[in-house]
Write a protein that binds this DNA or RNA. Structure first.
Ligand SMILES: [Mn+2]
Ligand SMILES: [Mn+2]
Ligand SMILES: [Mn+2]
Ligand SMILES: [Mn+2]
Lengths: 220, 220
DNA sequence: TAATATTTTTAGATTAGCCTAAAAATATCT
DNA sequence: AGATATTTTTAGGCTAATCTAAAAATATTA
């Protein structure tokens, strides 16, 4: 019996939460991420536990089993390959593709995703700079620094953004930041943790909120 | 409120049944096409009627409203565009794509389908020779004759097949018939209504079952 | 440690979509 | 026409996924 779309979405949420906050994942965190009630989460987690996708200890939390991790990784692979397709083939821009990929990621066909991967030239990263796991579920790792953590004078190139919602990406479009944009840290304001960066001869002020979502490869 | 996948599938079924057997569509016919119970059909048809997608008269039958026809046509457009994508871009063969397109047709994004259409060069027919409705819902019409109805000596070129299940299409692959195959009617056997056709110097015997599913453009 | 606050689970209800079995309506046949 | 067969609807029930409200467990704070 294949997983329902809903079950898949829960697994992905658990995966994503575990990725940032390590350790076991709380019911409430899942509820927040999925915009649903904690009661619904408890319900679904029980079912996923029955089916062997998560380890679940009442009042303690949830962890993905190997089976669950595999399922989540396949879903992420599909999501990121579809996003890549939408941008590289259909000329969507990076702020338009996430919601469509949320639907496409649930299409069930191993053959389809392998052919799509080949068609796209086995891309390693998606339009937001996120690594695309390969058929075996392996992610390409690379050194990356959060812009907000860089020191004055350091240079780098944007390689990824941590969030993918449309307003944030539109904001980056507006101030002229995209994947591969080279920049240098000009100054950092202690008062509000904002950062001024130099991008192509123009200085841009980035709030901490924004600067902490941008990942760079240092080039200095 | 958008239609659910299930509701979309019912509308498509009604559309397809009305296309062949004209007049209003019976509950039983829908049940057979959807492999579900007549009781479930009655249930769903009531709901679609509430929502204005079908006209429904108890014990008499179902007809699509303009709204319902539009929805069904969009679904068919999506199905056929995706099938075209799978064959022309991802090198699937015609017998592999129907089931995947059954899933892809439910992706909700007007922009996506318009871009896909453009990407594919605004194709007029899908891999099975079925016409793809354009953005306005218009189908390209053309003269076509059922192979089984052609007379001895007549020639033609295969332009479409009426059914799309894998075993039938694999059978056609095996005997060397595909879209655009030119052929001539050599003889017709009264006893079992079978037809012998000439395809590239070799004679092929087609049962009535097969010959009545193949559409040709006459070239003689 | 005891009181209070937060998190999590349970209980009970709702909706979509499906089922089987029985009842009602319509169609067919003698 | 009357009997029989078929089709369609109704009735009642099931599961997945959701919700709100209440209860239980855990965490925090005085
Ligand atoms: Mn999803
Ligand atoms: Mn992405
Ligand atoms: Mn479908
Ligand atoms: Mn087709």
């Amino acid at each position: 019996m294949p997983l329902s779309q809903t079950e898949e979405n829960y697994l992905k949420a658990v995966y994503k939460i575990a990725e940032s906050d390590q350790g076991s994942v709380s019911t409430n965190a899942i509820a927040k991420m999925m915009s649903t009630s904690a009661a619904s989460v408890t319900d679904m987690i029980k079912r996923l536990s029955e089916k062997g996708y998560v380890d679940y200890v009442k009042y303690y939390g949830v962890e993905l089993t190997t089976l669950g991790k595999t399922a989540a990784t396949i879903l992420i692979r599909k999501h990121r390959l579809w996003e890549t397709f939408l941008v590289s083939q259909l000329d969507f821009s990076w702020e338009e593709v996430h919601d469509i990929a949320e639907q496409l990621e649930h299409i069930q066909s191993k053959e389809l995703i392998e052919r799509l991967d080949k068609y796209l030239g086995f891309p390693k990263f998606d339009p937001h700079g996120d690594p695309i796991p390969n058929t075996e579920g392996k992610f390409t790792l690379r050194n990356q620094t959060i812009l907000a953590d860089m020191a004055i004078g350091e240079q780098g190139q944007v390689i990824a953004v941590k969030i993918h919602d449309t307003p944030f990406l539109q904001h980056l479009n507006q101030i002229g930041i995209q994947i591969n944009t080279p920049l240098r840290i000009v100054s950092k304001q202690d008062y509000d943790q904002s950062t001024t960066v130099l991008v192509e001869d123009s200085e841009i002020l980035l709030s901490h909120k924004v600067a902490s979502q941008i990942l760079l490869k240092k080039t200095s």
